[in-house]
Amino acid sequence: MTQTLADTKQPLLQVKDLKQHFPIKGGVLGRTVNHVKAVDGVSFDIYPGETVSIVGESGCGKSTTGRSILRLDEPTSGDVLFEGKNILNINKQQMKKVRGDLQVIFQDPYASLNPRQTVGQILNESMATLDVVPKKKRPARIVELLRQVGLPSDIVNRYPHEFSGGQRQRIGIARALAVEPKLIICDEAVSALDVSVQAQVLNLLNNLKKEYDLTYLFIAHDLGVVRHFSDRVIVMYLGRIVEIADKKSLFANPQHPYTKALLSAIPVPSRRNKTDRVILKGDVPSPIDPPSGCSFHTRCPIATEACKENIPKFKKVGENHYVACDLV
């Protein structure tokens, strides 16, 4: 079920029943013996100008969802509609044009930059590949991009290894902006940075959103960052969405037991505001052989026998607030 806002605007991005099952090879002949169900039927919408965050434990399928939307990993099944067009059904040449509108900022700002290229070459390559800026205007555009992300123009001839992590991430942001995108997927874009640098980069992303009228899909595990940065939040567990709501509703009134456990783990500076920590029992099940029924029932503190059999369907529990739990 696709969750939508009570809004007249059309979604910029629609993800429908997206699945990403990676094959496991075995035996002498290398046949497929099983699959890793990294993403198992994910559906959501993103509207123009929104910042939608995906949160969950490591291995829940957050980053794989982002990569599948971009077709960096070809999805097993499902639909991804960008401005109404299913981009999973188009060829590589057509997809190349879409990539100008869909960009990504990766987690590791060093691994995502070519160490053999200067900053100027990195930014120029993006514009040249998609031919978004005439060749004569590119040097001036590079200077302007660097200024917008808070970097001096005299770094164009320097290499990625000469910069700090925060500076490298700013270069990555400039590269994403170079092709004038409409939607940027931020895949753990600040998790590798120091806390003080995180705040600077988040403020930069917020300012760029207003200046360029951008839309963000923000993938993160830090709920404190998500609370500061998001309009709506999607909670994933073991490849499935368990709750989706606007930021205020989710943090003030979480409904799914897994969401409650995640929020209880957020550090609280004041003992007066401290809440009881929800400790989940057991380990996260393997995505190779996920539990039947509700995938969370093996760790859920309120699970019943019915939870082992029935896959919960989304129900509306508030305005723009949906949860996949039969016990709510």
Rank of each mutant, 00 (worst) to 15 (best):
I184A: 00
I185E: 02
C186N: 09
D187F: 02
D187L: 12
E188S: 15
A189V: 07
A192N: 10
A192E: 08
A192I: 05
L193F: 12
D194E: 06
V195T: 14
V195S: 11
V195R: 13
V197W: 13
V197F: 12
A199C: 15
A199R: 14
A199I: 15
V201A: 02
V201P: 01
L202C: 11
N203Q: 14
L204M: 14
L205A: 04
L205M: 13
N207E: 15
K209C: 10
K210P: 03
K210N: 12
K210F: 08
K210W: 05
Y212M: 09
D213Q: 13
L214Y: 01
T215Y: 05
Y216G: 00
Y216M: 06
Y216D: 06
L217I: 06
L217F: 13
I219L: 09
I219S: 03
A220E: 04
A220G: 12
H221I: 06
H221W: 11
L223S: 07
G224Y: 12
V225C: 12
V226R: 02
R227N: 11
R227V: 02
H228E: 13
H228P: 07
F229H: 04
S230A: 14
S230T: 14
S230C: 09
D231M: 05
D231R: 01
R232V: 03
R232M: 05
V235M: 00
M236V: 09
Y237F: 14
L238H: 07
G239I: 00
R240K: 15
I241N: 01
V242L: 09
E243I: 04
E243H: 03
A245L: 09
A245D: 07
A245S: 12
D246E: 13
K247R: 14
K247I: 13
K247A: 08
K248L: 10
K248I: 11
S249T: 12
L250I: 10
L250S: 02
L250A: 03
F251M: 10
F251H: 10
F251G: 07
A252G: 12
Q255I: 04
Q255S: 08
Q255M: 07
Q255R: 07
H256V: 06
H256M: 12
Y258V: 09
Y258K: 10
Y258E: 07
A261M: 06
L262V: 00
S264L: 07
I266Y: 04
I266H: 06
P267V: 03
P267H: 03
V268W: 05
P269Y: 11
P269M: 08
P269V: 05
S270F: 10
R271G: 00
R271T: 05
R272M: 15
K274S: 08
K274A: 11
T275I: 12
T275A: 11
D276I: 08
D276C: 02
R277V: 02
V278M: 04
I279A: 07
I279S: 09
K281V: 00
K281G: 11
G282M: 12
G282L: 10
D283G: 00
V284G: 02
P287W: 02
